[in-house]
């Protein structure tokens, strides 16, 4: 069959969602941010909630996420996105509100805002992109940087004795009664991408229930910060990041998946 006969509108099975703007993404080649952005916008498109969705983009690589997502958005100071989301959601409980935060933002400078928004059970979605590094400022150590992992501020590898060990804030907040759904996903392969999208959908759907925070962590690559090619970074991520940050549901419908 001639290719021209295949490439017809009626045969189209996948296209970039129109909720992504025409702007070229500012992310490095192969960076998971672009995929996660697109999945969120696909869910907003499929649920038909563009006119009721408000996003918050704080400091980090995704600081100008509002250039790429065709929805109303607010930029936030470093770490403060859950506070902004709280302010918006409390005054507009019928809207869908989400934050899009990196690991430095959510797990270091914004720890207090994260934990207290989770503890109050704000009815919001938190999308947490963990690539174990400060990408935007040039690859410094993050709270999630693995033991022994090199960064520009741990050039000889992270030494837990002097720098503290990496920690799993996602598992931490899952312990709080205010979180309703907590899961960890990745977007480096088609299967994980499809699962990640389901989790994003769940996080949005949960906002209709008014039962608390839905937090989805995405373990992602930072090939520039890790100084690898995109595909090498995805392999390294599977072999190293996934061991410490395992994939899957952590809390579903307010109940921890493993344990009590």
């Amino acid at each position: 069959m001639d290719i021209k006969q295949i490439i017809k509108e009626e045969n189209q099975v996948y296209r970039r969602t129109p909720l992504m703007t025409e702007a070229t993404l500012s992310y490095c080649p192969g960076c998971g941010h672009g995929t996660i952005h697109r999945l969120i916008m696909e869910v907003v498109e499929e649920m038909g909630i563009q006119s009721d969705t408000i996003g918050i983009a704080p400091v980090g690589c995704a600081v100008i996420a509002y250039d790429f997502m065709d929805i109303d958005m607010s930029q936030a100071a470093h770490g403060r996105a859950p506070a902004l989301a709280t302010g918006i959601k409390r005054l507009w409980p019928e809207k869908y509100v989400f934050t899009y935060q990196g690991d430095g933002d959510l797990a270091a400078i914004g720890t207090a805002e994260t934990i207290h928004a989770c503890n109050r059970g704000e009815n919001i979605a938190i999308f947490f992109v963990n690539n174990g590094i400060y990408g935007m400022t040039g690859g410094q150590m993050a709270p999630t940087t693995l033991e022994g992992m090199k960064s520009s501020t741990s050039p000889y590898g992270r030494n837990s004795e002097t720098m503290g060990p990496p920690y799993k804030i996602t598992e931490m907040v899952a312990q709080l009664p205010g979180t309703y759904y907590v899961a960890r996903h990745a977007v480096h392969k088609p299967g994980p991408v499809r699962k990640a999208k389901k989790a994003i959908r769940q996080a949005f759907e949960n906002q209709k229930l008014n039962k608390g925070v839905s937090l989805v962590e995405f373990v992602s690559n930072c090939n520039s910060g890790w100084k690898m090619t995109p595909n090498d970074s995805n392999i390294w991520m599977e072999e190293n990041m996934f061991k410490f940050y395992p994939m899957g549901d952590i809390k579903v419908e307010g109940k921890l998946v493993n344990g009590d």
Binding site: A76, A77, A83, T86, G87, L91
Partner: peptide, 15 residues
């Protein structure tokens, strides 16, 4: 904290 309260104001003021 006051940090959180002013940022709640920031978020909500945008609406």
């Amino acid at each position: 904290s006051e940090v959180a309260s002013i940022n709640m104001v920031y978020g909500a003021a945008g609406t």
